[in-house]
Write a protein that binds this DNA or RNA. Structure first.
Length: 874
RNA sequence: GGGCGAUUAGCUCAGGGGUAGAGCACCUGCCUUACAAGCAGGGAGUCGCUGGUUCAAAUCCAGCAUCGCCCACCA
């Protein structure tokens, strides 16, 4: 890249990392050079992820942003490990959602879909999709998502339709799909049946109405209902067989008030005798329990509520009323009759349409169902036996529990936008199910065929995503190479709707699981702990966050929020990411500008070089272990602390001494290593913060990092001795700094100190004399008597006597405090080691550690006591 | 009704049998030639409550409380 990042002017002047321009430039380059695209390559292992396809009506929200960051980290990470990584991207045609959006648009033009007719309407939806359907894909790019955009798929594209049709026909031929007249969840507003999973229960206030039904031949029975209007569809009354209050009336006939319909009184165990009056009105056409009881007892069904949500002709005088109005009228009329015995407040949960919020009307209609019994067993087994793993694990148990209780899936929708069922009817009502339009009825040969108008549930097609996107039903090279995918990352809200069904379909049609791992990410709530939602006004637009802080910062912050539990959105974490990107950028500026002309080369000559290399290896190990178990917070945390606390705060400061020094050979060695180290860091960090790392790598000619390798784990680069040595150096500098702060010694004042202690420590400190000068503003001497008014600073391996300008009385008080603290530690340690049970039963390492601690506290105490005695005496 | 999760510093959250951690916020001092979006230092918590196991519990177990989520044919 030449502009504007060529030469050192750019580095010199850019003291802050400015994401906006950098991001756009890099995304363009990655795309122009096809760096995200993968083709099957037998020489490399495949790593594949399919994105949960967002709805074409969707815009990027915080959940996507987190999920896509996770997938991008994994994709970039594995790509740099040398795997052939393909992150497959695409969109979902989203039946109801999309149809609703286009209908709303038509309404603004004063049109309904009926005005246009089906064909024209569907054409309008395609048009809408061409114009707006790609929005979310463009938004993905803002985040830096390295999807294989050249493979973009759509759940309604040509090849996908073939896959859906093939699956439907195959399942029909196997007898898993059938048509039935059954009680389904009907949304009167959307005008379609929906599946159980698309029903949301919401707590609402309501009333429990006790209604008296007279019994033919004398007596009465009182039932209780929350929906009085459904009595218009009653065909029976049921009581529990063991309920002694009602044994006498079972078998008799009750009379439905208002309509006069005769109702059988039946006994059924599904009635709860403790609820209400113990007598249950039976409306087989509008309640699932009633429907089942009706089937058992051969009861008539009366449809009192129509698909438009209004009372039908069966409701006599109430016909044509909306249910709410009907409820009011029925209640009033019952009251007038004296049949309404009691009305009590009764809050209960109401079934509503998950998509539009309208109360669901259970009613009987002709629908297509998929029987899950055969499909669910293998799909449950693979999770039970660990072939497919869930992270966090608990979602696997949730999945299994749900699978164990599966009921048939209602897959037909009375919509216009979607995969039309490949089913044709002849005038005699025979069915012909075929992949391509048949010429004649398979049963009677009639050529007058009409196609089923229903379309499939959107989730039917989504279930095929992991294999249909790689070319199935064709046996393509892509499919052979990239399937099964490695991991599916998604939110927990679609475990049942989508994940479960992909596993079932993958096993059925590919005879293989669709993915090895399922990673369920956290739900990001609004900062106040409420749901992020547009209607509540609690949503935060990730694009705004990117605009404000940059994509790297947004990714970093989101990864910090990728917990195993729900978390609140935290602006501070994003700001932390921004600060980190800036810190990294500035560290890179320092290294690159301060070592110009030197070539990157790892060195193990200097202790400090071996130390930072070793610390890097530990960070690398931590990152690899964290990513392997999808613990992105731990990965990012390890990177942050290594880069900031160790690389920037210590390494960079430590190498300033040789770098600004006169020893040219030493300087060359340190400079080379610093450049090498920076390159290692940037490679390790790239999957997490792709933009800033590319921008840095560009400055020394290593870009694009997308083509580079991940740093290599190497046990031989670990250096425990050097870590210990530098650790002690850090502790000594810290002690001096603490002393300076406590004694309020001005930063500019240079202190002189005499070291007394063991020889090894003396040698080490002498070697790092420059470090003490630079980082603690203290010059060290290793011989001679300390002055009598010197202050003692305890450091590893001995004591520093600092010629200090502080009050003797204050110094005595300070030492007394330190002594008291040391004494307390000694006593604690002695008590612990004097405890036979502790010494006898605690692990040896714990006891040893305790002994070492005690010894060091004893030494510290004795040193302080001696010093105190000297001060008091002098 | 069943299940799951959470309860740790002022805030947001990690951790997890062996002397309590991070970021932000706060206090003090510094524009020290990579970075003031910075540097150095500091204060701050009976780890929700009650029991139990253990030499040792924030951590494991049981119960309780509060909050949240999911499932359910709560007439």
């Amino acid at each position: 890249m030449t502009d504007p990042s060529s030469g050192t002017d750019y580095l010199q002047q850019t003291t802050r990392f400015e994401p906006a321009a950098v991001e756009a430039r890099w995304m363009k380059r990655w795309l122009d050079e096809h760096l995200f695209h993968a083709e099957p390559d037998p020489d490399r292992p495949a790593y594949s992820i399919v994105i949960p396809p967002p709805n074409i009506t969707g815009v990027l929200h915080m959940g996507h942003a987190l999920n896509d960051t996770v997938q991008d980290v994994l994709t970039r990470y594995h790509r740099m490990l040398g795997e052939n990584a393909c992150w497959l991207v695409g969109t979902d045609h989203a039946g109801i959602a999309t149809q609703n959006v286009v209908e709303k648009m038509l309404r603004k033009e004063g049109l309904t879909k009926e005005d246009l007719g089906r064909e024209e309407f569907v054409a309008r939806v395609w048009e809408w999709r061409r114009e707006y359907g790609g929005t979310i894909i463009e938004q993905l790019k803002r985040l830096g998502s390295s999807c294989d955009y050249e493979r973009e798929r759509f759940t309604f594209d040509e090849g996908y339709v073939r896959a859906v049709t093939r699956v439907f026909v195959a399942l029909y031929d196997k007898g898993y799909i059938h048509k039935d007249s059954y009680l389904v969840n009907w949304c009167p507003r959307c005008g379609t049946a929906i599946s159980d999973l698309e029903v949301a229960y919401r707590d609402m206030p309501g009333t429990l109405n006790h209604i008296r039904y007279e019994i033919a031949g004398g007596g009465s029975v009182t039932i209780a209902t929350t929906r009085p209007e459904t009595m218009l569809g009653d065909t029976a009354v049921a009581v529990h067989p063991d309920d002694e209050r009602y044994t006498a009336v079972v078998g008799k006939t009750a009379v439905l008030p208002l309509l006069g319909r005769e109702l059988r009184i039946v006994a059924d165990e599904r009635v709860d005798p403790s609820f209400g009056t113990g007598a249950l009105k039976i409306t087989p056409a509008h309640d699932l329990t009633d429907f089942d009881i009706g089937r058992t007892h051969g009861l008539e069904t009366v449809q009192a509520i129509g698909q438009d949500g209004r009372i039908t002709a069966a409701g006599g005088p109430y016909a044509g009323l909306e249910v709410e109005e009907a409820a009011a009228r029925v209640t009033a009329d019952l009251r007038a009759l004296g049949a309404l015995v009691k009305v009590e407040d009764y809050p209960h949960s109401v079934a509503t349409c998950d998509r539009c919020g309208t109360p669901i009307e259970p009613l009987i209609s002709e629908q297509w169902f998929m029987d899950m019994d055969e499909l669910k067993k293998p799909a449950t087994d693979v999770v039970r036996d660990g072939t497919v793993t869930f992270t966090p694990e608990r979602w696997g148990r949730v999945y299994i529990d749900w699978m164990d209780n599966l009921r048939p899936w209602c897959i037909s929708r009375q919509l216009w936008w979607g995969h039309q069922l490949p089913v044709w009817y002849c005038p005699d009502g025979h069915l012909t199910v075929a992949e391509t339009e048949p010429q004649a009825c398979a049963t009677c040969g009639s050529t007058e065929l009409t196609r089923e108008t229903d379309v499939l549930d959107t989730w039917f097609s989504s279930a095929l995503w992991p294999f249909a996107t790689f070319g199935w039903p064709e046996q393509t090279a892509d499919l052979a190479y990239f399937y099964p995918t490695n991991v599916l990352s998604t939110g927990r809200d679609i475990i049942f709707l989508w994940v479960a069904r992909m596993i079932m379909m993958g096993l059925e049609f590919m005879d293989e699981i669709p993915f090895d791992d399922v990673y369920i990410h956290s739900v990001i709530q609004a900062p106040d702990g409420r749901r992020m939602s547009k209607s509540l006004g609690t949503g935060i637009d990730p694009l705004d966050v990117i605009d404000e802080h940059g994509a790297d910062a947004t990714r970093f912050g989101l990864l910090l929020m990728s917990s195993t539990q729900d978390v609140r959105f935290s602006d501070e974490k994003i700001a932390m990411g921004r600060g980190f990107a800036n810190k990294l950028w500035n560290a890179a500026r320092f290294v690159l500008l301060g070592t110009q002309g030197y070539a990157a080369e790892r060195s193990d000559v200097a202790e400090v070089d071996r130390w930072i290399t070793s610390r890097f290896q530990r960070c690398l190990a931590a990152v690899e272990e964290a990513v392997a178990v999808y613990d992105f917070t731990a990965a990012v945390d390890a990177l942050y602390h290594f880069v900031w606390d160790e690389f920037c705060d210590w390494y960079v400061e430590l190498i300033k001494v040789p770098l600004y020094g006169e020893d040219e050979a030493k300087k060359a060695q340190v400079a080379g290593h610093a450049r090498w180290m920076l390159d290692q860091i940037v490679r390790l960090l790239h999957p997490f913060m792709p933009f800033v790392t590319e921008e840095i790598a560009e400055q020394y000619g290593a870009a694009p990092l997308l083509r580079q390798q991940h740093p290599r784990r190497d046990e031989e680069q670990l250096a425990a001795d050097d870590e210990k040595a530098i650790g002690e150096l850090q502790a000594a500098v810290d002690a001096l700094r603490r002393f300076r702060a406590e004694a309020e010694i001005p930063p500019g004042k240079v202190l002189a100190a005499v070291f007394a202690g063991d020889a090894a420590a003396a040698e080490r400190y002498e070697h790092h004399a420059g470090v003490f000068r630079a980082m603690a503003r203290t010059t060290l001497a290793f011989a001679g008597e300390p002055e009598t008014d010197a202050t003692v600073v305890v450091v590893p391996g001995g004591r520093l006597f600092v010629a200090a300008a502080i009050d003797k009385a204050e110094e005595i008080a300070r030492l007394e405090q330190q002594l008291a603290r040391a004494q307390a530690e000694v006593e604690r340690g002695e008590a612990k080691l004097g405890n036979e049970k502790f010494v006898g039963r605690a692990p040896e390492a714990v006891v040893t550690k305790e002994r070492e601690k005690l010894a060091s506290h004893v030494a510290e105490r004795d040193g302080l006591a001696a010093r105190l005695a000297q001060l008091r005496g002098g």
